[in-house]
Design a protein around this nucleic acid. Sequence first.
DNA 1: CTGAAAGCGCTTACAG
DNA 2: CTGAAAGCGCTTACAG
Lengths: 332, 332
Amino acid sequence: MAVKRVSSVDVARVAKVSQSTVSRVFTPGMPVSDETRAKVLAAARKLGYSPDAIARSLIMRHTNIIGIVMADITNPFYPNVLDQFTHRLQASGKQTLLFNATTGRDVDDTLPLVLQYRVDAIIITSATLSTAMADECARHGTPVILFNRYIPGSKASAVCCDNVAGGRMVADLLVNAGHKRIAYVAGRANTSTNVDREKGFGARLRECGIAEWLCEQGEYTHESGYAAARRLLARADRPEAIFAANDIMAMGVLDAARELGVRVPEQLSVIGFDGIPAGEWQAYSLTTIRQPVEEMIDATLELVEQRIEKPDAKPIIKMIAGSLVQRNSARV
Amino acid sequence: MAVKRVSSVDVARVAKVSQSTVSRVFTPGMPVSDETRAKVLAAARKLGYSPDAIARSLIMRHTNIIGIVMADITNPFYPNVLDQFTHRLQASGKQTLLFNATTGRDVDDTLPLVLQYRVDAIIITSATLSTAMADECARHGTPVILFNRYIPGSKASAVCCDNVAGGRMVADLLVNAGHKRIAYVAGRANTSTNVDREKGFGARLRECGIAEWLCEQGEYTHESGYAAARRLLARADRPEAIFAANDIMAMGVLDAARELGVRVPEQLSVIGFDGIPAGEWQAYSLTTIRQPVEEMIDATLELVEQRIEKPDAKPIIKMIAGSLVQRNSARV
DNA sequence: CTGAAAGCGCTTACAG
DNA sequence: CTGAAAGCGCTTACAG
């Protein structure tokens, strides 16, 4: 296998300079005379040389690689997130090592691997890790930033949409539209996202004098939203309004309503959460809370930079408000 | 920054063995006495040691990292592909370095970077590279496998759905249903995917005695499919059947029809290509050609293994047949 | 089974 | 500006 790779020593030989000089030519900001530079570049081109980032990482003690741990790549909210992360990271000269965690399980068994590759920082999305593991990373000096979830009391910083506030907005909208029989389609129970959205939603409902509402379990997929809606819409006391913990489930709800001939929004208001592009399509026209993805990514990347500089800075949790996007799936 | 990392030398010191021995303990298959192993493991645990994959890569001359270059992460066909690639790669002990290329441009400027990280192989998806660049990679000894596209005559191997055959299937279905006024909504013109699907489609149409059909340009997005359909459905000689080069555009077509009150499939048959999950949703129930994603991924990964072993083996292009999935968006 | 030593391909003080 | 040398953290012949 491995063809003989060309190294800086080879280039040095043909350019008739020292290996250090070759290295300098490929390190921006290092002093090299124009003449020497030209010789080296010519030799490099001739040999097809490019510096070895791995060797560089070893001596530099950082890799310029950011690990992104992600489950649920398949949930339509995330491709956009991943797209933006990789673009932005590349623009600042960093690479992305992508780890695929198993949905619904914590990532404690994945992280040791990530750590072995000596990534400069870890971003964790749509997955949860234990406090112990977060602290283990801190011990290794590898900053961990949680995206769209948080672990109170751990060493991991986090950037989150304000899901509690978002849940409250939904409750307000539904109550103001005069709805009484209301249902919530939950996401996976152990996710902070689900917990917070439900918490804000329920709290506000209670404040408005609605003490009870239906609740069905979902798991953040179209299918589970559809199934939950089938159960809900089959009841004698069919709800007039359904809030689903994310957009893709809300779309499942809408598809169930369509199938059953329940008219939206006349007979049923449906609201989602996320603001994925598909919610805009004519078939759904979904009213939702849009997560401020760009700002969240900005904040995450900023935190990554800061923590790489100062790994022991105190962990912070940054909440950013989402915004209501009114379309046609909910009465107003 | 960089906290003092613990290395095998540190572990050796506290375990009172040589550094080589520590290394052996962490290399499966190396002979170590049980007693020694226990001492080393204890020391390692105590210090929080884990081997440095970067240093290992340098001496081993391979990284166990596969580079995946991808544009269009946001196209719903790809999250699933990426999900499967990363899962399968991880299962065989490999990591994924993800590069995000710009949609519609070639990746010649991204590849030098990929090469610097000394990835063991490169998988390119939804992006095109020049023959020159493919050959440059070959020269570096880094195998390149194209997924879902191919470059005839280059040094890069490829795995593809048989798009020509798929296009023919669509034509057959439409002709058999008795459609005469037919339209094609194209994907980006320079993609082999689009070229082949149209080629098979057009050839079969001609064989069946249909010499002309409408054609609108799209770019593989819902929006562009929607826009193309608006143009098509506004015509006096409105088509009775539309084949869109991928599912997401077909869904845009369906949304345009819905908006205009054109009934599907009674007044309009719509067929897509890909087999994305969303096509199954009640709102669309899209008839389509399903790409055999699993088999394509199997084949790609197999090719990756082979080419890592023998980088100069002759490039091959592997075509795998897709299959017709009939749902309710097309008359039969 | 274990240790001493060389070497992977770089960067960067240290001298000149 | 340039070169000689040390060292990043490993693996793996080579001896014993």
